[in-house]
């Protein structure tokens, strides 16, 4: 009896859902085949450039040599991972990556917010626009060009050190000293990006209702109080959002910049995961070791991105699609 009841209700439910919720696939196809056709190039592209390369992950578990190929290279399990994590480099590389990335996020956000709040106090539009034009320009210049300029400026006989020695100081080795190198990266990244990062905060500041400022002014709030209690809370959701999203890129740590500035004198504090993979894995020909470190970075990085989107959704109500 129970079984007959199930068999009688099941087709009914299915029929209703087919009739009311879902047109048959043939109908959909007849009406919207063009939509599928439009997605076809992106699908082929995704397969070729994002899914097809995934077979290469196998290299991380092999003792790979290009001459033997994937099928001819012996399987070594987790040996490549062990080799990396047992080496003295592993700890310092991971520490460098995370330290450089976090310091860049922290200093970068503070600088951008401070700059936006300061610029927001200026009411003369022409001046505002001039300041923004000057400070956002470096964002659009590549790290190769910026690096080429800064390496000359920061070298021992460059403009900066000539200024320091002229004032009676000692020349500073910004790029050659392991102690200073991460800070050169962090400060130069902040210098390059603060104007650009402030654009979004300035856009958000213009959306704050002027009535709030007027009401506060009537209550006797000064400039600082208005900035502290109206402007800053007004952009806090965006600060939270951008900080969450930048979490996803922690393992990148600004690879292109680091690669431009990195030199053998500062490997101990400046080598990050990506520069290691490129130098040891690709240039050094240790493809299996590089692939293993890359897979480690890819998996953790993907989890971090998911975490950052999840946090952004929870804390700032943000969804990318």
């Amino acid at each position: 009896m129970g079984s007959s009841a199930v068999s009688r209700t099941e087709p009914m439910i299915r029929r209703r859902s087919v009739a009311e919720r879902r047109p048959a696939f043939g109908v959909v196809w007849g009406r919207h085949w063009m939509l599928y056709l439009m997605l076809a190039p992106a699908a082929v592209w995704l397969v070729l450039f994002h899914f097809y390369p995934l077979w290469g992950i196998a290299v991380a578990f092999l003792d790979y040599s290009p001459f033997r190929g994937v099928s001819g290279s012996p399987y070594v399990g987790l040996d490549n991972f062990r080799r990396f994590f047992d080496s003295p480099d592993a700890f310092s590389i991971i520490r460098n990556t995370i330290f450089i990335a976090l310091a860049k996020i922290a200093m970068g956000q503070v600088a951008a917010v401070a700059f936006a709040l300061t610029l927001n106090e200026v009411r003369v539009m022409l001046f505002r626009r001039m300041m923004q034009t000057a400070t956002t320009l470096p964002h659009f210049i590549s790290w190769v060009l910026i690096g080429g300029i800064l390496i000359e400026m920061l070298s021992s006989d460059g403009v900066v050190n000539r200024g320091i020695t002229a004032l009676g100081g000692q020349a500073i080795r910004f790029l050659g000293s392991a102690q200073l190198f991460p800070w050169t990266l962090i400060v130069s990244e902040t210098w390059k990006e603060f104007g650009w990062n402030a654009v979004i905060y300035l856009a958000a500041l213009t959306a704050i209702s002027p009535e709030l400022y007027e009401a506060a002014g009537v209550d006797g709030a000064g400039r600082w109080a208005r900035t502290r209690h109206i402007s800053l809370p007004g952009i806090t959701p965006i600060i939270v959002l951008l900080s969450c999203l930048s979490l996803g890129g922690i393992l990148n740590a600004g690879f292109e910049q680091v690669l431009v500035f990195l030199n053998p004198m500062v490997y101990s504090t400046g080598d990050i995961l990506d520069t290691y993979i490129y130098r040891v894995g690709l240039l050094g020909g240790e493809l299996s070791l590089g692939a293993a470190v890359g897979l480690f970075k890819g998996v953790i990085g993907f989890l971090l991105i998911l975490l950052s989107y999840w946090l952004a959704d929870k804390l700032a109500n943000y969804r990318i699609f």
């Binding site: 390369p53 995934l54 290469g56 992950i57 993979i277 690709l282 897979l295 890819g298 993907f302």
Partner: peptide, 12 residues
Amino acid sequence: LFSGGLIPIYLA
């Protein structure tokens, strides 16, 4: 968002 890394991409 998920990348297999530089080496697999190079080989592909």
